[in-house]
Design a binder for these strands. Structure first.
Length: 288
DNA sequence: AAAGCTATCAACCGCCGACTG
DNA sequence: CCAGTCGGCGGTTGATAGCTT
């Protein structure tokens, strides 16, 4: 009847992941792909529960993750989406490739909330903060149940916020408003746009940039990060395995950071996932 | 230089809908 | 249909890095 329990939680490790554990998990997933998370820790030789493994992979180890602070346009998109969706972080994250719900949630709580309050905007209702008691009472009620206010186009209620944001940018002389317009247009054209629905890019269509992307430049220490010439992804041979559908190469612009490439001497880039992973992805030490 | 404070974010917890037998 | 489990989600916590006094 039913399934076996996820984990008995006895003798399982908790707390921060070690580099060794990361290595095991990444090795396992790169070799086998994402399968039943419950089975992962056992098969990968980890004393963690499957849930913990899934979280570690999706929030930290996935190769398609962008690192570093959200860009100006990403932040605007988050605000816009939050005004429509409320605290549905996974939905919001699905609109931002390479970002996780956890990351967005953290960024919202630590940065955006403050920013909006500073601007006189209630981060919950996305409306200008009113000094009237009546409004304040409403806000408190809404705090219990985040207000998802939107007309059929999902636009009208947050226009003041959007205008305010744009106004602020202009005041600062920031030229990011074009990004903003792109975001806005995208959402207008396709309110239900979601990266889940975006078809996978064929390997030959991917060109890894020679210069660090914005996201990477903010997250990678300049000293430890350098990327030579553009490398077409098709030139990189991944092991014969099924990549999870959410795994693609966005943001993976420096494979030299990965010690997956075996030096077989014939000039081809092969992978040896079983033994080669000394510098577990993004070398945590150099990142921090 | 040390202590105290604040900000950040990785990781955990508990709940819930979907799924399985 | 039901009981039990899984996977995913959102809220919260705790460690620690960075800043201030």
């Amino acid at each position: 009847m039913g399934r076996q329990p996820c984990c008995d939680k006895v003798g399982l490790k908790k707390g921060p992941w070690t580099a060794e554990e990361d290595k095991k998990l990444v090795n396992f997933i790169l070799t086998n792909g994402q399968c039943c998370w419950r089975a992962v820790p056992k098969l990968a030789g980890l004393l963690r529960c499957g849930k913990s493994c899934r979280l570690r992979w999706t929030n930290y180890l996935r190769p398609d993750l962008k690192r570093g602070l959200l860009s100006e346009s990403e932040e605007k998109l988050v605000i816009e989406l939050h005004s429509r969706l409320g605290n549905r972080w996974s939905k919001i994250a699905s609109h931002l490739p390479g970002r996780t719900d956890n990351e967005i949630k953290n960024h919202w709580n630590t940065h955006i909330k403050k920013k909006l309050r500073k601007m006189g905007i209630d981060p919950i209702t996305h409306k200008p903060i009113s000094s009237t008691d009546e409004h304040h009472q409403k806000e408190e009620q809404q705090q219990e149940q985040p207000d998802v206010v939107a007309d059929e186009h999902g636009r009208s209620e947050n226009m003041s916020l959007l205008q305010c944001l744009q106004g602020q940018e202009e005041e600062k002389g920031v030229t990011g408003s074009s990004d903003f317009m792109e975001t806005d247009t995208l959402l207008q054209k396709s309110p239900d746009f979601c990266t889940d629905e975006v078809p996978m890019i064929e390997p030959h269509e991917i060109i890894l940039p020679c210069a660090p992307t914005t996201s990477f430049s903010t997250s990678m220490p300049s000293s430890g990060y350098s990327s030579g010439s553009s490398v077409k992804a098709e030139e990189i041979q991944f092991p014969c395995m099924e990549w999870p559908e959410t795994t693609y190469l966005c943001g993976m612009d420096d494979f030299s950071q990965w010690d997956l490439i075996s030096s077989d001497g014939d000039g081809t880039l092969g992978l040896d996932p079983l033994n080669q992973y000394q510098r577990i992805a993004w070398d945590r030490e150099s990142w921090n």
